[in-house]
Computed example of a mutant assay.
Amino acid sequence: MASLLSNYSSKIRPIKNQGGSLQMSIDLFLSSIKEVSTTEQKMITAGYLKVIWTDELLLWNSTLTGMLWMKFRQRDVWVPDIVIKNGLTAFSMMGGDFYYLYVYYNGSVYWYPYMVFETSCDLDVTYFPFDTQTCSVIIISWSYSRWEVNFTIDAGEKMGYSVTIFLAYAVFLSIVSDELPMNSDSTSILSIYLMTESSMSAMSLLISSVQLRLNHRKPVQVVVTTVLFSYAASN
């Protein structure tokens, strides 16, 4: 580890071509939604990020060393200055000096910063209590432009969250149906609302699965066979 960091600077992007863009991927994994405040127009969630990039300056021979990966302190290697753009708390970089990063022999770096996200959310209460809200957690790099650091956002957590929401509405609909009379000339507005939300959740689940399939599909190799025909004419 000491030899790898001897000429290493954590202030320089870890790519040999400093004119190029460093490609990164980010996954957001939510562990809980703690609060959605209508009066304060904010949302509080807890979770962690899975950030992956390639450090071209941290490479070693795994065959000679017998080591496939090592752990480095966050303060010792380069990490992107990721911040929450629409955050309401103190503006600070994610992670900390006590965090460790997993670095593999081929330069792949895995970083898992945990955080409680307190973000602003513009809530529309026009149809309260039958309203649907959309709140965002906007993650950016503060110092680097998109030409220097380029993020790719995955939808893996969105898929799991969509399944959870769909099952929740299905359970609520089942509970409401058990409390309603079997024969009635009218239909409960709450039942209609839950059926509508269940359908929208199923549609969101379908769209998320299609997005994941398109994002992770392997490139198709097209083999083109050229057949040459030779024709000889004799007089």
Rank of each mutant, 00 (worst) to 15 (best):
I139E: 07
W142E: 10
I140H: 09
S199D: 14
A168F: 08
S162Y: 04
M195Q: 14
I153W: 15
N150H: 15
V149H: 08
M200F: 11
L173T: 06
V176T: 03
F166D: 02
G156E: 03
V149M: 13
A170Y: 04
E179D: 07
S199C: 12
S188C: 07
F166R: 05
I153F: 15
D154C: 07
V171G: 06
W147H: 14
S198A: 10
S177I: 09
S143G: 06
E148W: 06
W147E: 14
V149D: 08
S199M: 15
D185K: 12
A155F: 03
D154H: 08
F172E: 05
A155S: 02
M182I: 13
M159Q: 04
F172Q: 06
S174Y: 10
D154Y: 07
A155H: 03
I139M: 15
I139A: 10
A170G: 03
T187L: 14
W147M: 14
I139P: 03
L167Y: 08
E148L: 10
G156M: 03
S199I: 12
K158D: 00
T152M: 13
A168L: 08
S188P: 05
G160S: 00
W147S: 14
M200Y: 08
S177N: 10
T196V: 09
S199H: 15
S174A: 13
L194Y: 05
V163I: 03
M159S: 03
Y161N: 00
V149Y: 08
F166G: 01
L167A: 07
S162G: 05
S162C: 06
T164E: 01
S186Y: 15
L173V: 07
L173N: 07
G160L: 01
A170E: 02
S186W: 15
Y193P: 01
T196F: 12
I175L: 14
F172A: 06
Y144T: 12
V176D: 02
V163Y: 01
V163A: 04
S188N: 09
D185T: 12
G156S: 04
K158T: 00
E197P: 02
S199Y: 14
T187Q: 12
G156R: 02
T196E: 11
S143H: 11
V149N: 09
L167H: 07
T196Q: 12
M159P: 00
Y161V: 00
T164C: 01
I189L: 11
